[in-house]
């Protein structure tokens, strides 16, 4: 089970073991981790699961789709170079240990 560390805006971190294939967004919303909303249910159609990915992990992520790129234009908190939508990142063995930071606000 890949481990994911969620760090909230205040710096509080939560470590979760996610079933392989689950998305980072699903891991947060189903385990009560605040700071990720996932309003569109994971179809890459909103930007309420916006997160910042620790630089060490950024290069290991699958490439961004055009759709994700477009949705990231609409984030509530500042978009940075390490911004991603967490519904587009699946927990897999290669992601084991990934650290993601939640933005100040999602809507």
């Amino acid at each position: 089970m890949p481990t994911v560390t969620y760090v909230d805006f205040q710096g509080q971190s939560t470590e979760l073991d996610l079933a392989e294939g689950m998305t980072i967004m699903q891991g947060a919303v189903m385990n009560g981790v605040e700071g990720i909303e996932g309003e569109c249910s994971g179809s890459c159609a909103c930007a309420t699961c916006h997160c910042y990915v620790d630089d060490a992990w950024l290069a290991k992520l699958p490439e961004m789709s055009e759709n994700e790129e477009e949705m990231l234009e609409d984030t509530a908190s500042e978009r940075k170079t390490n911004s991603r939508l967490s519904c587009q990142i699946k927990a897999t063995a290669t992601m084991n240990g990934i650290v993601i930071h939640m933005p100040e606000e999602q809507e």
């Binding site: 919303v29 909303e37 996932g38 249910s41 994971g42 179809s43 159609a45």
Partner: peptide, 14 residues
């Protein structure tokens, strides 16, 4: 959060 009232994943309700 995470309910399936709109389904989920790539085919979640438009």
């Amino acid at each position: 959060k995470g309910h399936l009232g709109f389904g989920g994943g790539v085919h979640a309700c438009l």
